[in-house]
Computed example of a mutant assay.
Amino acid sequence: MPGAIANHPVTELLTLSRQLAWGASKILRAYYRGETEQDGVALDLDVKEKKDGPVTAADLAVNHYVLQHLKDALGEETFGYLSEETYKAQADAKPFPQDWVWILDPLDGTRDFIDQTGEYAFHLALTYQGRPMLTVVACPEAERVYFASKGNGAFVETADGNVQPLTVSASDRPEDLTIVASRTHRDERFNHLLASLPCKDKLYVGSVGGKIAAIVDGRAEVYLSLSGKSAPKDWDMAAPELILTEAGGQFTHFSGEPLQYNTGDVNQWGGLMASNGHCHNTLCTIANDVLAAYDQAAQS
């Protein structure tokens, strides 16, 4: 990765991204706790159920905060900006023309946010020609910000300003690996896949950002996503992917192909495997075989 991106030093962009992650965390925590504004009125989540899941006032507040700061600092000529709200505003689904595109998820795990599990996250990724180059993931309730840039490693920052490098676990036997999964969003096909893998232990965590944080923190080694009637979006995966791979892990389709972002279709269809890397190809092969057998049985 170059030392500068469109005349902006990488360190400068990382600093800006980390500042925005902490600022977004403050906003999300305020809504999460129903804190009062200056006029004494409590912040209202104003939950609206949408086709792809709920949207709250917290999503919209963070979306506005981050995009305004990015555009004020960087402009809109060199950089594109993709988030759930900007995507909906597009007249038709097409890639942004810029090579450099910011991809934002202001509130990953909205249902966990509403249900008060504490397992929600904030994602921000800067991609180049469809691949992540600089990203941050914030877990507001844990008061941790994870960040990475291509080729420079992954790190975690705590509220006191302490920064530590991240490295995935060294576990290298499938039966010793822990899978981190959602408590919900699992259909019968996905439950069958989970039950068929050799990994014995399960850890249940909300939000994709929280799941990848569990892997880079060493609490788990494997995360799987399998689309059904719907699929995860670019903004769910782009930021966590680079955090994991820069910490030594792998994040691919079950086929082994890399994920691509800003293609015009924000859905990440199919099966996705994130892991500490040591059994990645083996688990991808098992997952493909299990699903092929399941689908064949379902059709007979």
Rank of each mutant, 00 (worst) to 15 (best):
I5H: 01
I5L: 12
P9S: 13
P9N: 11
V10S: 06
T11Q: 15
E12Q: 14
L14A: 09
T15E: 15
L16E: 08
S17C: 10
Q19K: 13
A21I: 00
W22C: 11
G23N: 11
G23S: 13
A24P: 04
A24Y: 02
S25D: 08
K26G: 13
I27F: 06
L28I: 09
R33A: 14
T36C: 12
T36S: 15
E37V: 06
E37M: 14
Q38Y: 09
G40C: 08
G40Y: 08
A42T: 11
L45T: 02
V47S: 08
K48W: 03
K48D: 08
E49A: 11
E49N: 01
K51C: 03
D52Y: 14
G53R: 13
A58F: 05
V62W: 03
Y65A: 13
G75D: 11
T78R: 14
Y81W: 11
S83C: 10
T86W: 02
T86A: 05
A89G: 05
Q90G: 05
D92N: 03
P95R: 08
P97H: 15
W100G: 02
V101Q: 04
L107R: 01
D108H: 06
G109L: 06
F113V: 09
Y120T: 06
F122W: 04
H123C: 12
L126E: 14
T127D: 15
T127S: 15
T127P: 01
Q129N: 11
R131F: 07
T135R: 02
C139F: 00
A142W: 03
Y146L: 10
S149L: 13
S149F: 10
G151I: 07
G161A: 10
G161C: 10
L166N: 01
A170K: 10
R173F: 09
E175F: 03
T178F: 03
I179N: 00
A181E: 13
S182M: 07
R186T: 09
D187L: 06
R189K: 15
R189T: 15
F190A: 10
F190W: 12
N191T: 14
L193W: 08
A195Q: 15
A195M: 12
S196F: 02
S196E: 14
L203S: 06
Y204W: 10
Y204V: 12
G209F: 01
G210S: 07
I215T: 01
D217F: 00
G218C: 03
R219C: 01
R219P: 00
A220I: 01
E221M: 05
S225N: 09
L226A: 09
K229M: 05
S230Y: 06
K233E: 11
W235P: 00
A238T: 02
L242H: 05
A247H: 03
A247N: 06
G248I: 03
G249W: 02
G256Q: 14
Y261A: 11
N262E: 14
V266C: 07
N267Y: 13
N267K: 09
W269H: 14
W269F: 12
G271A: 13
G271Y: 07
A274W: 00
S275C: 05
N276I: 02
H280Q: 12
N281P: 00
C284G: 04
C284L: 10
I286W: 10
A287K: 08
D289W: 03
D289L: 09
A293T: 13
A293S: 14
Y294D: 12
S300Y: 01
S300E: 14
